[in-house]
Amino acid sequence: MIITSSIFDIIPILKKGGVIAYPTEAVWGLGCDPFNRESVYRILALKNRPVHKGLILISGEAEHLTPWKDQLSPEQYQRLVSDTETPTSWVVPDTLIAPEWVRGDHASVAIRMIQHEQTRELCSHFGHVLVSTSANTAGHPPALTKDAVSQYFGDKVDAIFDAPLGHNNQPSQVKDLLCDTIYRN
């Protein structure tokens, strides 16, 4: 495992199917290329999380979310790609874009425009969405420091993206983009 603040050290790890830990707006997350089945299943195993629950995707660029644009009205798409006062992961219809190992048992996927500056830049340089799930095992609190990530996972992650944690008090809320149902507040 490497610990680095260089995006350019992290990108090749992601492109080779690696699993990384990185800071978000409120907690540390685990991430990988969502289109790499093996990498996603590594994260699920690390977290002891069943695949049927699904995972959140994050992006740093609106253009990364254009595959979902055809399923949304222009207003809904604008809401999806806009920053919100409270970081929000929007649940959007999806049966053909995100792989089943990301969607789980759902005909939708949760997507967030990441508001954490360095992680947004990481996503932008990666070139498409990343998996985002809290860095913890089932039943334990999310990691709030890179040291906590190391304690949880040790060398089972390929890299830690060493940047400061955001200033939010809780993880993103999860809301349905079409009907505003709140799944996590």
Rank of each mutant, 00 (worst) to 15 (best):
S82A: 04
I114W: 12
P67R: 07
E38I: 15
G54Q: 15
T119I: 06
R112P: 06
L65S: 10
M113C: 06
V40D: 05
V131P: 02
Q78K: 03
I97W: 03
Q76C: 01
S73A: 03
A45P: 08
E61V: 03
D33K: 12
V102S: 08
D105S: 13
Q115G: 15
H116E: 14
I111W: 03
Q76D: 03
S108L: 08
E85V: 02
V40P: 04
V81I: 14
V40F: 13
I97A: 04
T95K: 07
Q115Y: 13
E100G: 02
T95I: 10
Q71F: 08
P99A: 10
F126R: 15
M113H: 12
D70Y: 02
T88V: 02
Y41D: 11
R49V: 12
G54W: 14
N36G: 12
V102P: 06
R37H: 13
Q71Y: 07
D33W: 10
A45F: 12
W101P: 01
P87N: 01
A45Y: 13
V51H: 00
R42F: 12
P74C: 05
Q78V: 00
E100I: 08
N36P: 08
R120S: 13
Q78M: 00
F35Y: 14
D33Q: 15
P74S: 07
R112G: 10
P50Y: 09
G104D: 11
S89C: 03
S73N: 02
T84G: 00
S124T: 09
V81Q: 00
I111M: 01
L44F: 09
T88K: 05
R79T: 05
P34M: 02
Q118W: 04
L46I: 05
T95E: 04
